[in-house]
Amino acid sequence: MPITIFIADDHVILREGVVAILGKRPEFEVIGDAKDGQAALEGICILKPDIALLDVNMPKMDGVTVAQIIQTRCPETKCLILTMHTEDQIFFDALQAGVAGYVVKGAGSRELIDAIKIVYAGEMYISPSMTKMLVTHHLQNNQTAPPRHLQQLTNRELEVMHLLAKGMTNREIAAQLFISPNTVQTHRSHIMEKLELNNRADLIRYAVQHNLLKG
């Protein structure tokens, strides 16, 4: 079965371009599109796609608000933001809304395709350029020392946390550290429990805010 996708963007040329790119891939099926947030929300809740590709700035309702509502009304749909915005506040607002991915417009079609597959597989995807910008910003403006309970993490858990926060999947981390994906998942669960985090979005915010992505 192909991965079903709904695309919402008020720019007709961009929306049609994404539809054309994804429509050529046998593993994808674009089942709907919309030019404003309200129409997107209604269409997504009716069609229940696997993935909703959302722009941030849209008439009637912005993409972050759409994503937040979708988490309640049709949580089976994973939201992936596709936007030109690289401001950290918008990014963190999107994470708080529960999005599973954030891709900056201008990324190649290969990155978008990979992002959709990663999000569909249950992982989170963030454009590398976005992560680098956020790390630089927080290293310059946030010198807060890590809280005491960070010391509860083992060296291996710190390694895994660092790679998770950079957007790597369990399999990629396993390959880099020469351990199994199941072991990565175990470390991940321990990290979440020790730091009282709920998901990867929380982990990324934590890592960036406390300067844990250096190196």
Rank of each mutant, 00 (worst) to 15 (best):
E76I: 11
T77S: 15
K78G: 08
I81H: 05
I81A: 01
L82V: 13
T83G: 07
T83W: 04
T83R: 09
M84E: 08
D88W: 10
D88S: 11
F91D: 05
D93H: 03
A94N: 06
Q96V: 09
Q96W: 04
A97W: 10
A100G: 15
G101N: 08
Y102V: 04
V103A: 05
V104K: 01
K105I: 08
A107T: 07
A107V: 04
R110C: 01
L112V: 12
D114S: 14
D114C: 11
A115L: 13
K117Y: 02
A121P: 02
A121D: 09
G122C: 02
I126E: 03
P128R: 05
T131C: 09
T131M: 15
L134E: 08
V135S: 12
T136H: 09
H138Y: 15
H138T: 09
N141A: 00
N142H: 15
N142W: 00
Q143W: 07
A145Y: 01
R148H: 05
L150N: 10
L153S: 08
T154N: 03
N155F: 04
L158R: 15
V160A: 06
M161Q: 07
M161A: 13
H162M: 13
L163F: 04
L164T: 11
A165N: 09
R171A: 09
R171V: 02
Q176D: 08
I179H: 00
I179Y: 03
S180W: 07
P181Y: 12
N182F: 03
N182T: 14
H187W: 06
H190I: 02
M192A: 15
L195D: 11
L195I: 12
L197K: 04
N198F: 08
N198W: 10
N199R: 02
N199T: 02
N199H: 10
N199G: 04
R200P: 01
A201D: 03
A201W: 06
L203S: 06
